[in-house]
Design a binder for these strands. Structure first.
Lengths: 345, 345
DNA sequence: ATGAAAGCGCTAACAG
DNA sequence: CTGTTAGCGCTTTCAT
């Protein structure tokens, strides 16, 4: 059916030019100790003969795969899309390939992915943990083998592995403070069923803001969920059943906030006047829901770039860890209508 | 810094067991002509010694990369996320790795990606074209070399390459028919600036429905956009400026429909009573916008599975193309409030 | 059922 | 600046 022409190797070029394969190889990789003329000639004929280098062979020789593994919870967000664009940019410039797997926020799947990546001999790993991952044992084999691993967004505190994240404590503090300044006194906190480091940091920011504004922390106002839109609906039921109705909600992601808002509206609750809302992430649904959802925005593109750059630097033994081995990315509060009460107290 | 223990090779296992590397190799790949006992012994010691096969070496030898390239316009939709889950499932079962690139719906980027994938010697390619891609020249090198290529969703009509898609003509026909049955007489069509095969099919379905219901097709009701949320806002301006206000809109994707709805609502237009709306894709924003957007749903997971399975079959020379070399996936109308007029004519 | 040997295409000492 | 040589780890004839 097909007649693929024979692949050209460096030997073909060498023969053609009456030089050695070694020189061709060196010329092709732009080695400094090769005569400029030969270099030029080699590159020209390579072009003409339709040569494409065989990464498999060179990788085998160099004992590197040139593949970076990316493990994320879920690809379905503009944030993640941007992260990947940032990562791809840096990695393709550094001549690495990217293989992507999503754990669907399932720890079991994450473990399987880790093993698969290990067997596939990735040169490095970029990881944003599943929501319910509580330890990083399944990544130990990489650390042991000296395969660099960089966390981003949902990181695991580990001195061996750098992490890029935003200051979740601060962002959560600010958004809670914002709700308080809008007059909220009883603020529900919607968080993850299992407290990842991200969830925990946001929880702490929330608590700290309450403390600073002399509002007692009330455990009965904390709702633990799986953070999907449907779980937001459930959270709304919980809120409606509360004997003492809250006047604000800070959810640690937009999906749960949006689900919750929709359900409360159905029950006749006025947003923001009865209950003000804030989410986290600035997903596209945050700008579509009515009222528009106040949330925290951070640039995925930059986070992807940073994480990938650190990985490349580590691969080149060119990385000097900052204090705590953590990089902090800027984030910003995005205030929309969901949090702006008309009647200030 | 790190002391990675030496990697175990088949030679280590061979020496350990006093047999030849060839036998170890065969045992490991479960070759039939090797004694069951030796097979067992080999597999056990491999386990014990912590052996992991070196894909680089085996791939070099076999002249295959075991890598499949995936090229998509954009990862940011639950549809795409599901596609990838489906693809990953099939490919990982068949022992292939997946490298993913997004063109961001930019033909220039798509061309670059194609070249990179070619140089990386992918064994096969899964492609959903960028919105503005009009030909497939940049994929010809693959076809020439006999590297199988399977299109999905946004396909290019090509007898050499199978395509998996939904019946866009039919789906568009049905959704237009639905609007007509709701009493719409002047239905705007929001489509792509450049008519890909997908856009064209939907356009044709729209026209056919009009024809069948004796509604004259009116070119001035067609709005060509880039299909983002912002472009939907623009489309709303166009609609508001129309001398003879339409009473329905069928947009070929949800994002443009949602942007358009938001802007029209701002201008006081009642949805659906003044103007009924329908989109396409069933993105998460479609269920969040108010009123909920009527749209077309199709299961990405199945589409991903199908496309990947065809690719694997082609790689195994195990594929018999159906008529037209196209696979059609079921799709379904999802009726929400945006299209249900209260007052029937 | 097993082994010997060659080679996939490239790179990296080392020598000149 | 260039060539020689060896080998990365595996698979696969071809023997036995």
């Amino acid at each position: 059916m097909d007649t693929p022409e024979k692949e050209i190797t460096i030997y073909d070029i060498a023969r053609h030019l009456n030089i050695s394969a070694a020189t061709v190889s060196r010329a092709l990789m732009d080695h400094p100790s090769v005569n400029v003329n030969t270099k030029q000639k080699v590159q020209e004929t390579a072009q003409q003969m339709g040569y494409r280098s065989n990464h498999l062979a060179s990788n085998l020789r160099k004992k590197r795969s040139n593949i970076i593994g990316l493990v994320v919870g879920n690809l379905d967000s503009s944030f993640m899309t941007n992260i990947i664009v940032g990562i791809e940019k840096v990695l393709s410039e550094a001549n690495y390939n990217l293989i992507i797997s999503q754990s669907l926020d399932n720890i079991g799947k994450e473990i399987k992915i880790a093993r698969a990546m290990y067997n596939n001999r990735v040169d490095g790993l970029l990881v944003s943990l599943a929501y319910d991952t509580e330890n990083a044992e399944h990544f130990e084999s990489f650390v042991k083998r000296g395969i660099p691993l960089v966390y981003f967004d949902r990181i695991f505190p580990d001195n061996n592995c750098p992490g890029v994240e935003i200051d979740n404590v601060k962002a959560a503090y600010e958004i809670t403070e914002h709700l308080i300044q809008q007059g909220c006194k009883r603020i529900v906190h919607v968080t993850a069923y299992r407290l990842s480091s991200v969830a925990l940091d946001r929880f702490n920011g929330y608590k700290q803001a309450l403390l600073d504004y002399n509002i007692p922390f009330d455990e009965s106002l904390v709702i633990y969920t799986h953070l999907g839109i449907e779980d937001g609906v459930q959270a709304a039921q919980t809120i409606l059943a509360m004997p003492n109705r809250p006047d604000g909600v800070f959810a640690i992601n937009d999906a749960s906030a949006v689900g919750c808002i929709k359900e409360l509206k159905k029950a006749g609750v006025k947003i923001p006047d009865d209950i003000a809302f804030a989410g986290f992430n600035n997903d596209s649904i945050a700008s579509i829901v009515e009222p528009g959802l106040t949330t925290v925005n951070y640039k995925g593109y930059e986070m992807g770039e940073m994480a990938a750059q650190i990985l490349v630097d580590k691969l080149n033994n060119n990385y000097t860890p900052p204090a705590g081995n953590k990089l902090i990315l800027k984030s910003e509060l995005v205030v929309r209508e969901s949090s702006q009460k008309k009647k200030r107290k």
